[in-house]
Design a protein around this nucleic acid. Structure first.
Length: 155
DNA sequence: GCCAACGTTGGC
DNA sequence: GCCAACGTTGGC
């Protein structure tokens, strides 16, 4: 099986890599995704061992700040069943879940983050989904060439 | 804080 | 099934 690569967005004020570092086993579930395309990636395509870039949006600077790994493949996001949760989704039920999540584990926090500006300035990365106009997906695939280039830029 | 881009909702 | 209205995202 070929390893795949992904990018997850988070706002550091909401959930940061330091927060993940402080989780048990440096692992957490990635809940709250409420977009169908992102859901399909989480449910169907992300496999154990896949690599994840951890991206900060609405931060200064914005960019990729570390690496995680998928440790558990898609399963129902329990917050959709919880009336008190802001992500509550009334039409979902445990028998018919709509939203899914994966578990991720912290692998590495970059000493040198790869900022959005650096990504935009690198012609090798001009086709990255991340910088396509209007893209708002919070879960998106990354090509191996893009992954390798960003790893190089983080060193 | 603004606003462009996009996804979702709901009336018809 | 269309589309106007609305809410959200996220870069600036």
């Amino acid at each position: 099986m070929v390893k795949k690569y992904w990018l997850l967005k988070s706002e550091p004020d909401v959930f940061s890599l330091d927060d993940l570092k402080n989780c048990k086993n440096k692992t957490t579930y990635w809940d709250g995704v409420r977009n169908y395309q992102a859901r399909n990636y989480l449910r169907d395509e992300m496999k154990k061992g896949d690599g994840i870039f951890f991206y900060y949006s609405s931060s200064d600077p914005m960019g990729i700040f570390g690496i995680c790994e998928v440790t558990k493949e898609g399963y129902p996001d329990h917050t959709q069943f919880d009336r008190k949760n802001p992500h509550y989704f009334p039409s979902a039920s445990p028998e018919n879940p709509v939203w899914f999540m994966v578990d991720i584990k912290l692998i590495k926090i970059f000493h040198k983050p790869v900022t959005l500006q650096l990504i935009k300035d690198n012609p090798k990365l001009k086709n990255m989904k991340l910088i396509q106009k209007g893209n708002r997906l919070s879960v998106m695939p990354v090509l191996k060439g893009e992954w390798d280039e960003i790893i190089l830029m983080s060193k």
